[in-house]
Design a binder for these strands. Structure first.
Length: 284
DNA sequence: CTAGGATCCTGTCAGC
DNA sequence: TGCTGACAGGATCCTA
């Protein structure tokens, strides 16, 4: 679930709450969720946080780093004098921890950091700091939307010309950080039907799509990511920031904010996909 | 090389 | 109530 804006939100929060603290103890409750020797982490201080696409890097003293990928259902929940939680939105944000979905626990000096992950697709991986950039996933990441040159992206679209454009922008080797929410939102911004073959986008279409990705992601980061724990709606019920800015994602059956026609949910590249059939045109 | 589908795992929800 | 299948904010692996 968590995409670039959510991971950026986590990074900023943890930098605020956890940096410069020593890791007193690590508990691995699910072997699959922790790659590498967990003993080497103990006793080291958190030096800082980095983010590459959807991957979070925790740099520790002793030239050791952690790479954390939340995949579909990962969450990082800081429990100190206050709670700070982000990632896949769920009751875990406010629940008693650890619980059934807790996979790794980091005891720090002023609180505890929980890595929760319902589906166990995510992981924490230990590696020497100098090898972070050599990690296969990190090394193959394309530039993020703000650094993407439309000309380069256009080239990649030509190479993948027969795939639906949505499938192509979900590929982290093509453009980094986009997931199912922001793919739908960026395509809506650009007025492009997600089923359009990538080869049918012009350079102008490509520019518009990059612009859309930048705008929707910046807006999300500015509002704290789409999945903060703290958002309470006016009526007192819980919500997430998603509903503050999403124009199509999870809005099937509701009117399009531009034209009033009904937002539809379809299936593209094996993923649930939300479109306005009137505002988004299939390019041929 | 590309394109498409299966797969990892747990949980929830709709339909019968 | 219980069962079944579909689906889920990701990425990789396998096959053609």
């Amino acid at each position: 679930m968590p995409e670039l804006p959510e991971v950026e939100t986590i990074k900023r929060g943890l930098n605020n709450f956890c940096v410069h603290q020593k890791i007193k103890k690590v508990m691995v409750l699910c072997d699959k969720s922790f790659v590498g020797p967990c003993e080497v982490v103990k006793g080291h201080e958190i030096v800082g946080f980095r983010r590459y696409g959807k991957a979070l890097i925790v740099d520790l003293s002793g030239a050791v780093s952690l790479m954390i990928h939340l995949r579909m259902t990962g969450q990082l929940i800081w429990d100190g004098t206050e709670r700070y939680a982000a990632g896949h939105p769920s009751d875990n944000f406010t629940a008693e921890l650890p619980n059934k979905q807790t996979r790794v626990v980091f005891e720090l000096e002023n609180g505890t950091l929980y890595f929760n992950d319902q589906r166990k697709f995510g992981f924490v991986k230990v590696l020497p700091t100098e090898e972070v950039l050599k990690d296969k996933f990190i090394a193959s990441l394309a530039p993020e939307p703000w650094q993407t040159k439309p000309e380069d992206l256009y080239e990649k679209f030509q190479r993948r010309k027969n795939s639906p454009i949505k499938a192509v922008i979900l590929d982290q080797k093509v453009i980094a950080g986009i997931g199912n929410i922001y793919a739908d939102e960026a395509l809506f911004y650009a007025g492009i039907d997600p089923r359009t073959r990538a080869g049918n986008l012009s350079l102008k279409d490509t520019k518009k799509l990059v612009e859309g990705a930048c705008k929707v992601m910046s807006a999300s980061i500015d509002s704290g990511g789409s999945t903060m724990a703290t958002y309470v709606k006016a009526d007192g019920t819980k919500g997430d920031y998603l509903e503050l800015f999403a124009k199509v994602f999870r809005r099937e059956g509701q009117p399009c904010t531009k034209c009033g026609r009904e937002i539809q949910k379809i299936r593209v590249a094996g993923r649930g996909t939300h479109i306005c059939p009137h505002c988004q045109k299939e390019l041929v």
